[in-house]
Nucleic acid binder design. Sequence first.
DNA 1: GCGAGTATACTTGTATACAAGTATTATAGT
DNA 2: ACTATAATACTTGTATACAAGTATACTCGC
Lengths: 244, 244
Amino acid sequence: MLNDSNDFLYPDKWLSKASTGERVACELRMRIISGLIESGTTLSENKLAAEYHVSRSPIREALKVLSNENLIRLERMGAVVVGLTEKEIEEIYDVRLLIETFVFERLVKNDTTSVVRELTKILEMMQIAIKYKDADEFALQDVLFHETIIRSIDHSYITMIWNNTKPVMESFILLSMRMHFNEKYDDLSRIMKNHELYIDAISSKNREIMIQSLHQNFDDVQGKVDDLWMSQQMLSKAREQEKE
Amino acid sequence: MLNDSNDFLYPDKWLSKASTGERVACELRMRIISGLIESGTTLSENKLAAEYHVSRSPIREALKVLSNENLIRLERMGAVVVGLTEKEIEEIYDVRLLIETFVFERLVKNDTTSVVRELTKILEMMQIAIKYKDADEFALQDVLFHETIIRSIDHSYITMIWNNTKPVMESFILLSMRMHFNEKYDDLSRIMKNHELYIDAISSKNREIMIQSLHQNFDDVQGKVDDLWMSQQMLSKAREQEKE
DNA sequence: GCGAGTATACTTGTATACAAGTATTATAGT
DNA sequence: ACTATAATACTTGTATACAAGTATACTCGC
């Protein structure tokens, strides 16, 4: 049932040390964000357990996780899928803008050389990922880039917010990258340029550049949002045609 | 074992519709924040299950919740208590400052009359709570005040952040209020004045007043932090003496 | 044909059972 | 006395079992 038409969506190697529950959460998350599971669908623990060939324990765990991420709503009977509309994606980026701005203000008060060094390393990794056309790796490094910045100030509650938004963000970026990677090289170089700008802002502690970079980043995303949105629409149309 | 010296810390009536897992989470949260469970302690699912006379299922659920709130760290063997130091409390208020500022910027773009009306109602409830010296009710309404503001902009990810920080904040405020309520009436009137200021800022859409109010609020908290901190120290000293 | 009431099937929440793995402790050998 | 190895006791993760509650559907009465 699960493997009828699609392979697993989430990269296996990222799940090496994950428990069954985490694996299910990742898989469900991808299926929800990609639109394979439509908004409004009601998920039942029993059915999911049967589909994934596991017991209800890990399923319950996964549903709790997804509920925290606002992808589903746990109700009396069943978990209804909230999904990710354009609105939610904008809201996630609101949050990222908010915390990255906060982090920047903290960051510039201290020595930033070690962070800059780490970020530069990640940037080079991203370059390699482009070279070998590895969309997943590129997405991973992209997320890691921002995570590195955010964790650098050692603020447990900012980190908490990051931890809660990261999975959705990561999945979203992953899907976007897979769709774009082979077509739009312009986009990729723009993303790279923007990340360089980001590093510049941090190393020079220049607020202006920072804001410029953040907005640029947001614009980048906006395009991806539209595309993902369109692809979801297409998927759902395709499904409707199947039903006929 | 559990009821040897202390009654339950969390108000029973707030748990009317809660599951066992939620109840355990609330109780453990209060015990951690109050310092009854010291930082660094390792909690075992089995022992907790035995203490609370429930099975491991709800305990696991509770530990996941507390882990999300950054009160414990789930490790290979056991969950180690992180606790709430002065640093963490400041960090929570960083986050609240961050999101309430964001919310204000959104709020002033729309009609605020209905929110102001709700807030005014809550303020009157707080006044009644003072009149009847009901610290718990006062704390509840205080938290509800801020929740009302935050939820008013209907931003799912800001709401998510609130949901994740609320329980700790609520417990913390609850404990603070219980300690202060009967001693410092000055504090209470200051808090009330500040909430009025908050409402003024929203209804007049005045950014200056808003910032003033937020900072005032933070100063209020700072005092409470010191006191709670001291009380934790006292508790831990008392425990050491018991051991002798 | 239609409405009320009951029965059934499915829901979650909690308890228990089991398996795999890890730390600690005790014992045996040097 | 000390080290190494083995055994034991305790850890989590997953599966299964059971109970209480809810929605649906069917049947019976009108």
